[in-house]
Computed example of a mutant assay.
Amino acid sequence: MVGFCDVVRVDTTSSRTPYVPRQRKRPKDLSVEAVRGLAALLMVAGHVIGNTSDRGMGVADDSVWRLFYLGLEDIRMPLFTVISGYVYAMRPVERRDDFPQLVRGKARRLLLPLLTVGALLFAMKLLIPAANTRPELGDFWKTYAYGYEHLWFLEAIFLVFLAVALLGIAGALSTLSKWCATTGAAFVLYALVSVPEAANVFSINGAIRLLPFFLLGYGMYRFELFQLNRWGLIGAAALFLSIYTLKLASLIGDWEPNEVVRRIVSVAVGVSGIVLIFAARRAFTWKWLAAIGPFAFGIYLLHVFGSAATRIALEKAGIGWLPAVFAVGLAVGVGAPIVFQLLFGRWNIVRTFVLGEKPIPRTTRREAASGTDEEPTAR
């Protein structure tokens, strides 16, 4: 969600170079970038299809498209969250004095885009007649009080960062045994606890769902977990497929589990699938997929504008063939945010209020323009 929500990137401020998202000074692990690119593709693909028959492409609930959407719902956003936890573990908060800095940094990184992109998304749905859903103007406050569209993730992951930082300060993640106990408790919490919808303020339910996956990513990096050999990968694949049959049985079969069992199966699918993806990530470390990774946060924030505009344009043109609508929507949903970041990502107002990154200091900009600092970094 290198994680797309917790990315610290090298920021080249020379006026002769295009904008690229900030990268850590440490050598990039292209395999993790590829996983992040895969997560971005899966997320956009899901939103292009839509979660119900009146959203996205408007496909029927009994279609193959709906099965594809539901079949990956336990992996899409949990995968982003695992990556965020993986990166957070590189520089975790373990001292009380560091907590205020984390709060300020995550407020800028997550809450400023929530304010800006949330307002833009609400305005788009309010003003464009062809949008899937049209909100009431009086409901604008709910954009920030509750999870709104895909932006629920910003609220939920913000709460997760705070919770994990507090756990780190308390020493609950300092050893493998403590991490196991804490992560196990988080999975139990997700399986058993659900806040009523009216009380789901600031996407608390989303935070409960994401917390164990964030801790999973944390443990993967901190304790070097799930470094599997060939036989380990085969075993992981077999475990995932066996668990996934239960998921398929609930989607296309006669099995109707109760809510607790459904959540347990959901967690098992997510954990086994993500562990398999991470363990086998070097097998699909393609350059084009790794190149998408650094732009994943911008893709997450802005993809709906490109994919919605594409769907409306295709409808106006009389193009309703679903494979074409899906392919073009996916391409524009991924490509348009990348182009936007390349063109406007060096403007401080865009960097800060849309992408949540630190602004380029004026002195640094003057030095870059005069050629006295070829490639400074902003932290």
Rank of each mutant, 00 (worst) to 15 (best):
V195T: 12
W231K: 07
K247C: 05
T183L: 06
T182S: 13
V261E: 11
E155Y: 05
G232I: 10
S203A: 15
A199S: 11
F158V: 04
W231C: 04
I234L: 13
L215V: 03
L215T: 10
F158C: 02
S194Q: 13
L248S: 05
K247A: 03
W255F: 15
A238S: 12
L210K: 01
A191G: 09
L173Y: 03
G206Y: 13
L166E: 01
K247Q: 15
A199K: 15
I264G: 14
R209A: 15
I243R: 02
S177E: 15
V193A: 09
K247E: 13
W231P: 00
L233Q: 05
R230Y: 13
L166F: 02
R262V: 00
I157T: 06
E259K: 13
L176Y: 07
E197L: 14
F153W: 07
L215G: 03
R209G: 05
A236D: 02
N200D: 15
P212M: 00
A172Q: 14
G171D: 07
T175K: 07
A237Y: 06
N205R: 08
N229F: 01
L228G: 10
L154Q: 08
L189P: 06
L251S: 09
W179D: 02
F158W: 15
L192S: 04
N205M: 11
W255P: 06
A186N: 04
A165T: 03
G168L: 04
P196C: 12
L176K: 09
K178N: 05
L189D: 08
L246I: 00
N229K: 12
S242N: 03
E259H: 12
F214C: 10
A170K: 14
V275F: 01
K247G: 01
V201D: 06
A185G: 12
T175Q: 02
E155R: 09
G171F: 04
L216N: 02
F153P: 05
L159E: 11
